[in-house]
Design a protein around this nucleic acid. Structure first.
Lengths: 224, 224
DNA sequence: CGGTATCTTGATTGGTATCAACTTAAGTGG
DNA sequence: CCACTTAAGTTGATACCAATCAAGATACCG
């Protein structure tokens, strides 16, 4: 969690506070796998994730889905298109049950009058932009080993472990593949390699990180 | 050029106007190849490109340079790090002679009090974010033909042609390679293929687009 | 004019995509 | 609860694209 350079509180807290102070706020629930919004869609407002995880993706020219980010609680969705009065450029789908606040366009522009809020928003955008720049660099890595290692670390850091030490966020092989930009088959094969090397443990659907240090080395291009 | 949803003028114009209205504005010149700022640097302010083109890049884990964007006039540099009070996450280098306005951090935060400016800035950020999302998707394309075709179209659209119909922006093979995420050798080879197919014309340093329609098809994954 | 940066070409290796088949798991309705 | 259907995961064989290594050509600059 990062802290707002203007108000010294964490962004998540601030933004949520602002949104809550502004009525009406509509609460919405999405089931696992449900579509929050699609590409090229006209939104009526923005979404603030209260809990759950969703994947943000975009269809590539060849019809493959490229996952841009996995986003969890405290994230705003749909702002870009609302701000620019455009249709969405990305698709958002719930990976777990997701609970959001929906804020109408009108209410959003109302909050936007608040000097403090708008500055927080700029800070949030800036953070998001940094993360997105990093994604470009990672996608430019020519070896998938590195990208897979990076992905595992990211999921571990962002969403943590359950009580048994397994990754809390379960992802299909398909989604892993879409995120790192390779085929499902290659993903499976490389996961097996990681398992054989004692870096991870695969038990059915669950995945456990065993040697995060070595994974970090791999993601940096060392050894292998 | 896109138009501001708030003030109906083009962003470039508006932002420049705002900056000019705010003294002191320091004008700086950078020669071709000169570094504007490096990664992990502490900036004292932001830069507004008045003319010229620069490349924004980041070192990947394996020590290769990944070019994120080529940015021309009307672009703001360094805002992300100033807003978040962090060091830069990217490197900016002049590709042509570049003329910028430098605006101190203090002056920037002064302008930031202007409700209108801050909204324009949000709009600009949003646009930039969209472009960056697209970059991720393109880097995820597994075939370099598509990425090269896309790159050529982009340089053509963003920076145009000279009076002879050649691409106005000259780029080294190295920079093309860094942008599309492949080796220099592969870039050269694929350019030759494009030339043999009559899509482009290579004359020494200059490059001319002959069949932009077919390049667009290739970038979308058709044929080839 | 010599030295350095950039560009180019060839041969080889290796990583991933692709295709095809199969296994396992998860629903679903009778 | 079982038979059926579909989704997800897995494995192997093969082809192809791009990286790598090595060498040379060309342009550029002091």
């Amino acid at each position: 969690m990062f802290y707002c350079s203007f108000c010294q509180a964490s962004h998540t807290f601030c933004i949520q506070q602002q949104i809550n102070d502004h009525k009406p706020v509509i609460s919405l629930q999405f089931n696992e796998g449900e579509l929050i919004f699609d590409e090229e869609q006209q939104l009526r407002g923005i979404y603030f994730i209260k809990s759950g995880v969703c994947k943000i993706s975009k269809m590539s020219a060849n019809g493959k889905e490229q996952i841009i980010h996995f986003l969890g609680e405290g994230t705003l969705l749909g702002i870009r298109s609302i701000l620019n009065e455009e249709t969405t450029n990305l698709k958002a789908r719930a990976l777990t049950p997701v609970s959001v606040c929906f804020l109408s366009k009108k209410s959003f522009f109302e909050i936007l009058k608040d000097q403090n809020f708008i500055r927080q928003l700029l800070g949030t955008f800036a953070e998001y932009l940094k993360a997105t720049d990093d994604r470009i660099v990672i996608m430019g890595e020519n070896k998938m080993v590195q990208r897979l290692a990076h992905f595992l670390i990211k999921i571990h850091d962002d969403f943590g472990e359950d009580t048994l030490g397994n990754l809390k966020l379960y992802l299909k092989r398909e989604d892993m593949a879409s995120y790192i930009g390779v085929t499902i088959e290659s993903t499976i094969r490389m996961l097996k390699v990681f398992e054989r090397k004692g870096l991870i443990l695969i038990q059915g659907k669950t995945l456990k990180i065993l040697d995060i240090g070595e994974l970090k080395n791999i993601s940096k291009g060392f050894s292998f």
